[in-house]
Amino acid sequence: MTPLVDPLPPYRFAPLGDNAIVIDFGNIIDEQINKLVHSVFYQLQNDPIPGMIEAVPAYCSLTVFYDVFFIRNQIDDQNLTVFEWVRESLKKYMSNQNIETGDPQLLINLPVCYDKEFGTDLDFIATKNEIAIEEIIHLHSSAIYRVYMLGFLPGFAYMGLVNEKISSPRKQQPTPVEPGSIGIAGRQTGIYPFKSPGGWQIIGRTPLKLFNKEKVNPVLFKSGDHVKFHSITTDEFNYLKNNPPSPPGVG
């Protein structure tokens, strides 16, 4: 297997309070950096450092939460703080890293109805970007997106990157957004699993349920997955809403 990044790009460690540490690769949205974040993340999931509570991958950082009391009782070197011990453990971990893609990634196909009834901000983007609505739909549904991270709401996937021609700014004030709504912010695209206030420009809606609390894993996406949208009619939307496929979207 070929290394994705060779050598390791520069990174720094920073504390997030007294029980978490951030491995920070800079302030950048970059596919290679994000792959590296996921690589470290999935390897830590399979082989956690002692006392790790959980790790949270983001665009260009990985945050590791740890149990201070547990680690203090494990380590002999009283000269090191727990923070320093975790930092040194992760440093060793990083130098041992063979940077491969981590977990097997899924390609998830998601039906989206881009009707104006659901895509309430299609007109805004069309006017602002001087582009036909059909072209927005075509551009949005023809690319394969990467799930860079999940956050904000349970199961909210930050995906990218959308074509520059349909890139659009966030709203000044958040407005109420319906569950399943697909939005664009900058060159990111995302889906709201729940009714929520939201600042992204809404271009359509999926009839599929993105969050199911009854499942062992209630969230449809995980970091590193790929997502492809396909355009459906209002009739198809209503049909799928009433007859959800199982498992939804996995292709």
């Binding site: 309070g17 260009c60 945050t63 956050g151």
Partner: peptide
Amino acid sequence: LISSAVSFGTIQLLPDGQLIILMADHQTT
């Protein structure tokens, strides 16, 4: 700033110059 993890107790600077301390029901990022 590009989104990254936050925690219970994170002190954030809001655009209006005021502060918020994230509490138990904080977002993950």
